[in-house]
Structures are given as structure tokens and as C-alpha cells.
Design a protein around this nucleic acid. Structure first.
Length: 389
DNA sequence: TCGCATGATTGTGG
DNA sequence: CCACAATCATGCGA
């Protein structure tokens, strides 16, 4: 019925496609059909054998025809396709076929269609939100959440890195998902011209794609969570495990301590500067000074030698600085430009004294070591440099 | 392995 | 919140 139509319906080149040399497909179909008709009569066994035999022959025919397809016949096929598309009955037939399709296999998927959001995904989302990896970027939220594990308050670059990676990956994922979806939708739309594909089916396909992709999303979120957890445990470990500071760091800290012995309380800026120089956090600097003060006070005698060494060093650094104020001095012996208030003892510290206390200037922070009163031996001029912040 | 050194934590007071 | 004091836990050299 369809094949007669084009002659009337399509103006251009109607006769061509329907001529004597019919389309191979058509021929195949028409020749394949007859055997099924005599199904009802005759011996089934014989019929089956005959059927198979004929089927083979038909396949042979089809193959033969495929082999002999020419450009011309392709053109014809094209024309026929066009003719079918433009057939006036096509929409009706199309919708009927769609309906039939709906009612058969595909409808079975309806059941699982409206599933609630994956609970695991929800859990992961909540977790990432709590960790500050997902959600709006609030002043170091992510970093704060992770680094909150440490009292140091030192910002971890890793956590924000995780956040960044997570977001770029999520973006990539979303892009890939939408790209693929549009691709498939376009494909189905294209196909809907030649086979019954209802809009609903396209929708369903999109949903299926999203479901498939959501497993990737789950994976992404899961691995992000894992990374955050690892980071967190590493921070906790770092807190538990004690590492000695580097020699250079201790040197810098000691230098500051002994050059500000009368008032070893670095300001916030000084602490930051020290932290930067030592490659440690500000709170570690605070810890260090806290420990140092208390231990020095407890046993000044023990620290005497150390004090002398550092006093000497700073003094040397100072004299060097005087010579060439603009030349930064070599490693470790620099005085802090921002405090600029080294309690320098210029000269060799008195030895063998119980407490040399070569620089007990005006103590701006009360008597941080009251039992340690400055002897009169305090060199004149040592206290002039003593300034408090 | 021991003992000291040292960074971190905890509790307290101002 | 900061400093102090006590204490813990680990690092490290002898």
C-alpha cells in the first residue's frame, strides 16, 4: 500500500524508485513472506524444513542483492525514504506504532522510573557539605573544616585543592553528561523520522542516561570524601606525631629569643615573620616561645651557654649590619627587620657568671623572670635598644 | 634501651 | 584570648 503512494504524492522523480528493479529490501520482504502463509496446512516438520531451506535461499538472495547495490539503488532508497516521510498517513501510523511500543516492552521500565534520589548520593552530598567541599565557598570553609582538626589553625593548601579538584571534576562530569544527553536526544530525534520514537521515549532515555551517569557522580563524590578523610587523619596524625623543627628553624627562633631576652614576647607580626622564616605555623611559634620561656626560666644556668652563643651571633650580625646596613646577612643570623628591636649585647658576654644577663633592659612584659634580676653588670647601652611594641 | 630534649596538649588564672 | 605551668608523647643520641 505504501509503495504505490509516492507516485501520486511526491512530485519529483516518482517513477524511479518504484520501477521494475524494486528495492532489494522490498524484494526480500516480499519473497520472505509467503512461507509463513502456509504455516497452517501441511506437515509441520516438512514445512519447517522447507521453511529453513527457503529462508536460507532468501538470505542468499538478500546478500546477493546487497552485493549488487549500486549508487543508483542507494539513491532510490533515499528517495523512497523521503517518500515515506512525506506520506500523509505517516503521522497516524507513527503514533499507532509508538503506542504499540509503549504498551509492550518499554512500558516495563516505567515501574523503576520514578525512583527517589539515591540515598547514598544524598549521604555523600551531606558529608561533602559538612566538610565544606561542596556548597558555597565561605571564608575558607573547606580549609577551615579540615584544618580545624589541628589547633594550629594553619591553613592546609590540600583541602582547598581537594575542593578545587572536586569542583572541576563535577563540572567536567556535568558537561559530559549533558553533552552525551543532547547527543542521544539528537540521535533519537533523527531516528524518529524513520522509526517510531515517541517524545516520552526520548525522555525516558534521558532519564536512563542520567541514572547511568549518576553512578559516576557517586563515585566522584565518594572518592572526594575519601580524600577528605585521608587528609583529616593525616592532620590528626601530624598533630599526634611530633617532629623536631629543623636546625635552621630552631636557630632563627633562638636568635629571636635571646636577642629579645628581656621581653621574649614576639608580636603577632613578629610571630608571623618567624613562622614564615621557619616554615612552621604561628601557633607553633607561640608554642615554642611558651616552652622556651618556661624552660629558660626554670633553668637559666642550663641555657647560659646557648644564650651566650646566640648573643654573640646577634652581636656579630649587628656589627655586620652596621657596616653594610643594606646587605642582608647570611642564613639564620638576620635580625628581624620588623621588630628592629634586638636587645643586642655588643661585646663578648661575661662568662662564668651564674647569670650573665647581659641584656636585662626594661622589661616591658612585667618581670617575666622575677628571680632573675638584672645585675649591675648590665652593659650601658644595652637597654637603649630595648623597645617594646 | 634509657634518659634527656622538645613539640604539643591541657588546665588554670587573669 | 593569652600566658603560664604541668604533663604527655615522641624523637634522638649515647
Amino acid at each position: 500500500m505504501l509503495q504505490q503512494q509516492p507516485t501520486a504524492a511526491n512530485g519529483p522523480g516518482p517513477g524511479r524508485g518504484l520501477g521494475l528493479n524494486a528495492h532489494p529490501g522490498m524484494h526480500a520482504l516480499s519473497s520472505a513472506r509467503p512461507p509463513s502463509h502456509h504455516r497452517s496446512d501441511g506437515d509441520p516438520g516438512l514445512d519447517g524444513a522447507e521453511n529453513g531451506h527457503e529462508g536460507r535461499r532468501d538470505i542468499g538472495d538478500i546478500l546477493q542483492q546487497i552485493m549488487t547495490i549500486t549508487d543508483q539503488s542507494l539513491d532510490e532508497a533515499q528517495a523512497k525514504k523521503h517518500a515515506l516521510n512525506c506520506h500523509r498517513m505517516k503521522p497516524a501510523l507513527f503514533s499507532v506504532l509508538c503506542e504499540i511500543k509503549e504498551k509492550t516492552g518499554l512500558s516495563m521500565r516505567n515501574a523503576q522510573e520514578e525512583e527517589p534520589q539515591d540515598p547514598q548520593l544524598v549521604r555523600l552530598d551531606n558529608m561533602l557539605l559538612a566538610e565544606g567541599v561542596a556548597g558555597p565557598e565561605k571564608g575558607g570553609g573547606a580549609a577551615a573544616a579540615v584544618s580545624a582538626a589541628t589547633s594550629s589553625g594553619g591553613m592546609s593548601p590540600d583541602s582547598s585543592q581537594i575542593r578545587n579538584i572536586y569542583h572541576t571534576e563535577l563540572e567536567k562530569y556535568e558537561q559530559a553528561c549533558s553533552e552525551f544527553t543532547t547527543h542521544v536526544v539528537n540521535l533519537l530525534r533523527e531516528q524518529s523520522r524513520t522509526r517510531p520514537v515517541s517524545p516520552r521515549e526520548i525522555e525516558r532515555m534521558v532519564a536512563i542516561i542520567h541514572r547511568k551517569f549518576s553512578s559516576i557522580q557517586t563515585q566522584l563524590k565518594q572518592s572526594t570524601c575519601e580524600a577528605v578523610m585521608i587528609l583529616r587523619s593525616r592532620f590528626l596524625d601530624a598533630r599526634r606525631k611530633r617532629r623536631n623543627f629543623s636546625k635552621q628553624a630552631t636557630e632563627v627562633l633562638n636568635e629571636y629569643f635571646y636577642s629579645h631576652l628581656s621581653n621574649p614576647y614576639p608580636s603577632e607580626e613578629a610571630k608571623e615573620e618567624l613562622a614564615k622564616q621557619c616554615g612552621i605555623t604561628v601557633s607553633q611559634v607561640s608554642n615554642w616561645f611558651g616552652n622556651k620561656r618556661i624552660r629558660y626560666k626554670k633553668n637559666i644556668g642550663k641555657f647560659q651557654e646557648e644564650a651566650n652563643i646566640y648573643a654573640m651571633k646577634t652581636a656579630m650580625g649587628a656589627t655586620q649590619n652596621e657596616d653594610s646596613p643594606h646587605t642582608p646577612n647570611s642564613t639564620g643570623s638576620g635580625s628581624f627587620s620588623l621588630s628592629g628591636s634586638a636587645d643586642l649585647f655588643l661585646g663578648v658576654p661575661p662568662m662564668n657568671g651564674e647569670q650573665s644577663a647581659y641584656h636585662m633592659g626594661n622589661q616591658t612584659n612585667g618581670n617575666w623572670q622575677e628571680q632573675h634580676t638584672p645585675p649591675s653588670a648590665t652593659p650601658p647601652g644595652s637597654d637603649h635598644s630595648e623597645n617594646s611594641d
